[in-house]
Design a protein around this nucleic acid. Structure first.
Lengths: 342, 342
DNA sequence: CAAATATATGTAAACGTTTTCAAACAAGGG
DNA sequence: CCCTTGTTTGAAAACGTTTACATATATTTG
């Protein structure tokens, strides 16, 4: 509707002065500012951010790319990103890669064309190269990884220490008296799941506990198969007395099997999940779980990007933040008196 | 970097022709198109969408406003919106109102300044007027409500029939032999929770079942209070044999109480939740729940908006879609043989 | 074959800002 | 009272497209 030109005409001032008023430039008298603002009010003027973005070369949009949005780890992280970024005047454009490298590539291309100010990404399972991200560097668009990253040194990223999370959880099970702990593993292809497995195995080793074949139950696309494998292992000797699941849903599946077999939790088998999903605390028994600190990760990734967006004062150092996860202990793994989180 | 002017210079063609090539205008020879495209390749040209948007007056961004993103109902709906909209070349800008009317207002203002093509919104709990949305109509920006809407006639919206969902679930409990059903209600202020309660009460009435004071357990901010109330009611006569919760988390809380009291589910008390959260199917016993069809709602809302974005052929009729929810029956409410969903 | 029509390209003005540079004006110092 | 300095304002170009209109070329038609 009304634009700056109209305001200039209405106030008798020049375009430049009008612009200065809306950019909080201090080079303008309180009086003229008053005049302009009241004229703006009268004409119900609304700045056109597209025009501003075009002229100044940078939009205040930030692209956020996740495999899929409806998973707690992503939606929680995005939640806090939105909070941090919108507080600084940025808005976020959400894109889903659906775990496809090609789609990820298309999204990047699109975001570049949109002239986003920055990008935050959790890469797809297929992605194992940064080729498609090179264009961002060329266009000088800062990039931050979160949750899932690539193991290359020169990238900004915020992740949790999956190895340590699994290690902590396993140690906790040992501390609770478990001696025969098994691991429900995640997809071998996904680095964070490999890390968790490694943490599990190292913890056993440090505690001088045996790790037999079959103690790590490999991920299988078919849930039925996983259930069958788990059932078999539960019946075999030596009987498991602890389970570390690679995720909370995985833990739920296990709980279900245990329930059906009439195996008591945590008395006979203690169990710990990974992810600290919302429902963990509402289960009976409450499910112990390793918190991935999704909101912290999101907040940090956003803050990191904001820093990157500041006019580069010095040559910035690449930040590679690795957060220690927090083990949330609940009834499902509590066999000895200890303080819980609730 | 390179822009259309550069391409024009490189190919000896005019700016207009270059533009036509990238807009798939048919008014251009296959040959010149070839020339332009190869030049674009060589100069690694990338269209600047901001500039295009400014000139043509339309951005291809769509604002999506939700109270908060990390709740299944919203993230699932957004998931399918993103799929539908990105397939049509739109990108979506996510905003969280945090259940604040004022924040909602600010967001709308911001989206208008960004010149979004359309808006999809699930209103905050505080919102009971459309005052802040008037600007959208004035600026000719189409609007679609989803999940939560306002009860005014002239608005596009996609919602589920909460009344019917609760009714179905209650009827199901009756069919399973429950005669003393209680309801864990949601916040009285929120319309969809009132609807659910109404559906519950009507279903009892139609089945000529008594509804005593105390059979509807009012929502209380404090979970401890809710647990206490529920515990009390469970101990009182006539003993409840069925529970309809206003949400799945609410049902989880109830399950926990039942478990602690040693009351068997579904044998002694059958229970149905609302929302069909991801975890319902993994619980033991599986939690029956009313599916809100989040993805359907999201998909439909997006489609509705897309229609609205078409150049208005005729005067369009306001669409007010009310989807019937789907009751997912699992073990928690199954006392008689019946087919389940898994 | 000239006139009429269709098709392909070119010219130039927008879109609504930001921003550089210059101009005007006031105040302070000698 | 002139010169310098500092502050506020103005003029105009730019950002990279789209698009109405005009023009040039090719095709059809009687």
């Amino acid at each position: 509707m009304a634009n700056m030109k109209d305001l200039a005409k209405a106030t008798g001032l020049s375009l430049a002065t009008i612009s200065r008023v809306f950019n909080d430039s201090d080079k303008v008298t309180a009086q003229t500012r008053e005049i302009v603002l009241s004229a703006a009010e009268k004409l119900s003027y609304r700045p056109n951010k597209m025009a501003a973005a075009l002229r100044s070369g940078r939009s205040n949009s930030i692209g956020v790319i996740v495999p899929v949005i409806d998973r707690e780890v992503f939606s929680s992280a995005i939640k806090s990103m939105e909070e941090v970024l919108s507080a600084s005047g940025y808005n976020i454009i959400i894109c889903q890669s659906h775990e496809s490298y090609q789609r990820e590539q298309e999204i990047i291309e699109n975001l570049v064309q949109l002239k986003v100010a920055g990008v935050i990404i959790s890469i797809s399972k297929e992605t194992n190269t940064t080729d498609h991200l090179a264009v961002l560097e060329k266009e000088n668009i800062p990039l931050v990884f979160f949750d899932r990253s690539l193991e290359l040194g020169k990238l900004n990223s915020v992740v949790i220490n999956n190895y340590n999370g699994a290690y902590q959880a396993t140690q906790h099970l040992v501390d609770q008296g478990c001696r025969q702990i098994i691991h429900l593993a995640g997809k071998e292809k996904v680095p964070i799941f490999r890390e968790r497995r490694r943490g599990f195995e190292d913890a056993l080793r440090r505690n001088k506990l045996a790790l037999e074949d079959g103690d790590v139950i490999a991920f299988d696309e078919s849930q039925a198969n996983r259930v069958a494998q788990l059932t078999a292992r539960l019946a075999a000797e030596p009987r498991p007395d602890g389970i570390l699941a690679h995720g909370d849903i995985s833990a739920l599946v296990a709980l279900r099997v245990l329930n059906e077999k009439g195996i008591r939790v945590p008395a006979e088998v203690a169990i710990v999940g990974f992810g600290d999903s919302l429902f963990c605390t509402y289960l009976e028994p409450g499910l112990s779980s390793v918190s991935q600190r999704n909101e912290d990760v999101g907040r940090l990734a956003a803050s990191l990007l904001l820093e990157e967006l500041q006019p580069q004062e010095a040559d910035r150092v690449v930040a590679h933040q690795v957060l220690p996860p927090v083990l949330k202990i609940r009834k499902s793994s509590l066999r000895r008196p200890q303080t819980t989180d609730e």
